[in-house]
Design a protein around this nucleic acid. Structure first.
Length: 471
RNA sequence: AAUCCGGUGGACGAAGGGUUACGUCGCCAGGCUCUCAACCUGGAAGUUGCGGGUUCAAAUCCCGUCCGGAUUUCCA
């Protein structure tokens, strides 16, 4: 049997982190078993579905490299098929028209709650033969009254539901449009989905879906209900916990491979391994490794994983996304070092590409002023001699490069009988504007000779002004 | 309210009857060092939600209980 999984988001907002993890597991499972991965857009809610949302889902999936073998299919284009099944079921008595109004239903629901009962449809239109005037009926599925439905879940284990707990759910609204639980069943059957993997908030829907699948005469898929992702406060992950849109992570300089790595480990494990490349994930992922309990999204671990991926990624791969970060920050990189050189210098000191772009601004553009704290500490009169000596030695470095620069700086320190600490920091602040950067040879190499000398001059002037002001 | 699912240091996971519950992130301290990182070393942090039972032995099996979540929508 060919493994066929599907990712079936509804296009009513952004592509949520939690959905992405579900998609990832579906995608990995299909790839691992040489199966097929289907993308289906569940847009039966016409009010809330938007094209913009469809686009953002497609964008996110393609950014993450989770390509679908089939689809996207749209439920809105399959209404005829749903209608056909509804008519058949109506004829066979597997479904019936219900003329209860919303108001009546609400009333009864409240009464049931007041009586301490489980609120559900009481089935009063089950045997109705005559229409009711002035009411557009909904169609309800005639759920079995007796017996149990056993869900053999690949994650949760064997879960049993009593049919007596289930009521007759609406499969078509009064305007004739199909509802979610119904269209999912028809689609999964028609699309020959072998493994239904989705959030465990759907576990309770599963017995109803199984009953409908049986009414259809379709084979049952394997179910795998994945635990939810929670925010730091234990509530389901949502906007108020920070970014939940995957594309926000792209914009903040996270790598797709890191995103996938973090998400795959949130709810799945392979022993103690933390870092996975895509090919490894595909090779190792399987259902027995999936955890059954909900997990909390943790931004600092994501940061660590992103940094690990930045450290390991080829510079060539990072150039394009880094360039986008510069563009977004209005940093013009046309006059400055090659981005690959910047990446090599900074891959160990940035957790995101966004950070990397901001931290390396000085390589491409002059800074407005020295960082006040750094200047106060390092650009003092005592540093004047060191700055001047380094400046004059650097002026003679040719060709400009890490070796020549290093020799010049160390030479200056030696000549003045100063430790590198007394020389390095003033130079660093002079050239970068702040007190943190890679080693000086690398930093000066990135900045380039012309800029480095000009900035040293500026710093020398700054220190002289300061000395004057204090006397 | 009912039904279903879940509960291992602050976070993610490991261990699925067998020593002092393991790893990662984070946190703290030290080392390296021209700074920041990276890296290395060490540390704090848990009565495995709680109570009971089975057993020579329980995080693990059983029962109860508490807490959290989901569902019970003409949302998906």
């Amino acid at each position: 049997m060919t493994v066929r999984t599907r990712f079936a988001p509804s296009p009513t907002g952004v592509l949520h982190i939690g959905s992405v993890r579900t998609a990832l597991y579906c995608w990995l499972y299909a790839r691992h078993h040489n199966g097929e991965f289907v993308l289906r857009i569940e847009d039966t809610d016409r009010e809330r579905s938007t094209q913009a949302s469809v686009d953002t889902i497609l964008d996110g999936m393609s950014w993450l490299g989770m390509t679908a073998d089939e689809g996207p299919f749209f439920q809105s284009e399959r209404y005829e098929r749903y209608q056909q099944v509804i008519n058949e079921w109506l004829q066979d008595g597997k479904a019936y028209r219900c003329y209860c109004t919303k108001e009546e239903l609400d009333e009864r629901r409240e009464a049931q709650i007041a009586r301490g009962e489980k609120p559900r449809y009481d089935g009063r239109c089950r045997d109705r033969t005559e229409p009711r005037n002035g009411v557009d009926p909904v169609v309800r599925f005639r759920n079995p009254v007796d017996g149990d439905v056993v869900v053999n879940d690949a994650v949760k284990g064997e879960v049993t539901f009593a049919n007596a707990e289930l009521d007759d759910l609406v499969i078509a609204r009064s305007d004739g449009s199909p509802t979610y639980n119904f269209s999912v069943v028809i689609d999964d059957a028609d699309m020959r989905i072998s493994h239904v993997m989705r959030g465990d908030d759907h576990l309770n829907n599963t017995p109803r879906q199984i009953n409908m699948l049986k009414a259809l005469g379709a084979a049952l898929p394997v179910y795998a209900h994945l635990p939810m992702i929670l925010g730091e406060d234990g509530a389901k992950l949502s906007k108020r916990h920070g970014a939940v849109n995957v594309l926000d992570y792209r914009d903040r300089g996270y790598l797709p491979s890191a995103m996938l790595n973090y998400l795959v480990r949130l709810g799945w494990s392979h022993g103690d391994q933390e870092l996975f490349e895509q090919a490894e994930m595909v090779a190792l992922f399987d259902l027995p490794g999936v955890n059954r309990s909900a997990s909390t999204f943790n931004a600092s671990k994501l940061d660590w994983i992103n940094q690990q991926h930045i450290q390991r990624a080829s510079a060539a791969l990072l150039v394009a996304p880094l360039a986008e970060q510069y563009a977004a920050a209005n940093i013009d990189t046309s006059n400055g070092p090659a981005l690959t050189a910047v990446i090599e210098a900074y891959r160990e000191r940035a957790t995101t590409l966004h950070e990397m772009a901001l931290a390396t601004r000085y390589c491409f553009m002059d800074f407005e002023e020295f960082d006040p704290g750094s200047a106060k500490k390092h650009l003092r009169p005592v540093a004047l001699e060191a700055l001047q000596r380094v400046r004059s030695k650097l002026a003679n470095v040719d060709p400009w490069g890490p070796d020549g620069v290093s020799a010049a700086v160390h030479g200056a320190a030696e000549e003045l009988g100063l430790g590198m600490g007394k020389v390095g920091q003033p130079v660093r602040v002079a050239v970068t504007g702040a007190s943190m950067s890679p080693s000086l040879d690398v930093t000066l190499d990135l900045v380039g000779k012309e800029r480095a000398l000009a900035r040293l001059d500026r710093a020398i002037e700054f220190v002289e002004e300061r000395a004057k002001a204090s006397t």
